[in-house]
Design a binder for these strands. Structure first.
Lengths: 167, 167
DNA sequence: TAAAAGTTTCAGAAATATTTGAAATATAAT
DNA sequence: ATTATATTTCAAATATTTCTGAAACTTTTA
């Protein structure tokens, strides 16, 4: 496979995979492009490469910045804004895991906490409901604990997790 | 909060959360309903409770069965099919993690494996591409290893993982 | 201060994903 | 073999999400 072919394949496939993860295609593609780029890119560059509109690029760059994985990179003497991404893959993954936990596990925990703590009316249905949602709540908290512990260990978090699991 | 209110809230919120995880609302709601139900339900029951069409229920039950978290539960002397779900929450989570890994991590690994192993033409762009995608590949493999190790440890996998991480 | 160069916003258009409902298919009872 | 009961399929309808493009806005330069 040629470099150009591989690059195109990577960006396209990454976009498709992302939709499965509940992340939108353009956002994933923009991020993929910044990741493999040798220098920061401006909005025009991204529009050009991915053949998408200015508005789309602007909105998705904002989202990527909200996620904390893309930064504005000011060039001296240049008017235009350039964008760059976290290139350290371990650190990138750490940020993404932290962020997804904040956006997905935490609301789930709140919901389960709330519904599992209802008074209940003693009916079998109400008892089963409390039982199952409480178990789910405990489980979600355990998952959250694990993520937090793993993720606050800055460098090489993945490798050291692997080592812990293997022994 | 009343039981009925809590039940409705749980099913609705679960459906919304699911869309964030890339899972469709009806599928998540059907699963939630089976989880908290005291007995297996037939298609009619589900249609009734969630106010969705027969076709929708049928298609999503099939998907849940493909995921391995919902089963047909034959009642003797009954024509109709009844559906039930894995009620052990730890085991349920184990299946879901395994299945998502199979459906999401593995295709990702294959992609990264493929694009990172191109010949390259020596240009800085091609070198950067190989470097980044190789790092992503290594990272995805490590994540996959961790998931496999954790998930093959049948019972209490989450708790024992937590213990390992804490010490 | 006005023009230039760039960025953001957002209403409507387009693309995707989900859902419906009725016909086709399957299975069981008579 | 026929009827009754239940399930599955899939084309069309609906709903949701994403994207576009032009206007509004912001910042810099002259």
């Amino acid at each position: 496979m040629e470099y150009n072919e591989a690059k195109e394949k990577f960006i396209n496939a990454w976009g498709s995979l992302a939709t499965q993860w509940g992340i939108n295609r353009a956002m994933a593609q923009i991020h993929a492009l910044l990741l493999i780029s040798t220098q920061p890119l401006c909005v025009e560059d991204i529009m050009e490469e991915l053949q998408i509109s200015r508005g789309n690029v602007s909105m998705n760059l904002r989202q990527l910045m909200d996620w904390g994985i893309v930064y504005k990179d000011v060039k001296f003497g240049e008017r235009r804004e350039y964008f760059n991404t976290q290139k350290d893959i371990q650190e990138l993954a750490r940020i993404i895991v932290t962020e997804r936990s904040k956006r997905e596990i935490q609301p789930t925990i709140r919901l389960l906490q709330e519904v599992s703590s209802i008074k209940g009316n003693g009916s079998p249905e109400s008892n089963e409901f409390k039982k199952i949602t409480s178990e789910m709540y405990e489980m979600a908290k355990a998952a959250d604990d694990i993520v937090n512990k793993v993720v606050t260990q800055k460098s090489n978090w993945l490798t050291s997790l692997l080592i812990k699991i293997l022994r």
